[in-house]
Nucleic acid binder design. Sequence first.
DNA 1: AAGTGGTCTAGACCACCGC
DNA 2: CGGTGGTCTAGACCACTTT
Lengths: 223, 223
Amino acid sequence: MAAPIYLQIKDQMIEEIQQLSANAPILSERDLAVKYNASRMTVRKAVNELVDEGYLYRDSNKGTFVADERLHKRNTSVDPFAEERPIKYKILYFDIKATSSKDVQDRLFISSEESVLRIVRVAMFEERPQSIEEIYFPRLSIPDEDLGNFKKLLDFNSYIAHGSLSQTFVPIIVPPQYAHLLKLKINTPIILVENVITSKNGKPLLYMKVFNNPNEKVIEMTL
Amino acid sequence: MAAPIYLQIKDQMIEEIQQLSANAPILSERDLAVKYNASRMTVRKAVNELVDEGYLYRDSNKGTFVADERLHKRNTSVDPFAEERPIKYKILYFDIKATSSKDVQDRLFISSEESVLRIVRVAMFEERPQSIEEIYFPRLSIPDEDLGNFKKLLDFNSYIAHGSLSQTFVPIIVPPQYAHLLKLKINTPIILVENVITSKNGKPLLYMKVFNNPNEKVIEMTL
DNA sequence: AAGTGGTCTAGACCACCGC
DNA sequence: CGGTGGTCTAGACCACTTT
């Protein structure tokens, strides 16, 4: 099954846009339709997505123009779920335990009797610690046969594809037991990102606390 | 000039969605087209926007359903630009000065000789300090007659409508001179949000540093 | 077989802009 | 005036799921 036409057009346009300089006009939608031998609505769908992603901008009644590269939409706070660099993980804990802490109960909507699968790991890039991640799954939502399947358990992108991601940013002093793991001085302020992935029907799938090393990871977004 | 049909449909659908419970199915696109006496493509545009905003979710080949309210897309980190609560501002500084600090020069792309318009203010909600905002404009980009026009200068939404917003989140210890203004103890960790609004053609319009009071403002987003 | 969302077409009219 | 993006229509075919 071939990719939809509008996606093929979009890919071609991205390549051509990259050859142009900022603020250069692109062809009008009617001309693009001729060029790609498609209907105007189809090329318009491709252009709309490129505008949404910050590759292009429109000026009504005038035309469509190449956007400055710095204006491309991005969000590094979701990078834990779409990291482009080769990250290696060092596992600190991997266990099933009763739900001890209240934040885990609250975020996963489970009682103190229910147990959770916990994974705690350090994300390393070239020997430099990027962050420490505490990941909690409701034990009951994981089939027994998947318990040892790290690849499947930690395939965040597939969770997000079927769900929704909520993030909270909390300023804290780095916890003492994590300071040396992150190679930070004690009393260093850091940002703790609390992530909850919820399936479309509203059931929490996982809760993940990310203690970010501010010297390595800059949280930024363009919207 | 009346609003576009798809926006009228969208507004009506929002009201009807609010009467439904999570995961309830809505009418199919073809039935919606009949109901609203519009073409399927038009109702589809309305539905698409509601899906993008998190009001609905689609399940391919099955139908479209009401999303859990907690999954509505939002982002309180841009609240300085779309604050829903009645915020009062106390001005601390309002002056034109040489560009002293390097971060301002770098973010606004101006040299140390150029001057900037600076506004420093405390955002208060019911006597409680929410944040301190340091706002810098390139002096040259502001017409003389607008210099005293606070409403126009600080109408962030109009900037964003013609531009793009970039944000960086930096964990810091609250600066001592701001600690008492925010009613925080010294050494409290806070999140400094650095905002740059850039016009579509790439020119920086303003640079704004927001020192958030973590006891008052929670930065969270659902995406 | 019937129904769903996903894609696509070939037109059309509008408001607005620059010439 | 001609060109632009913005909206809208009335069809169509597809892959897929449910009955």
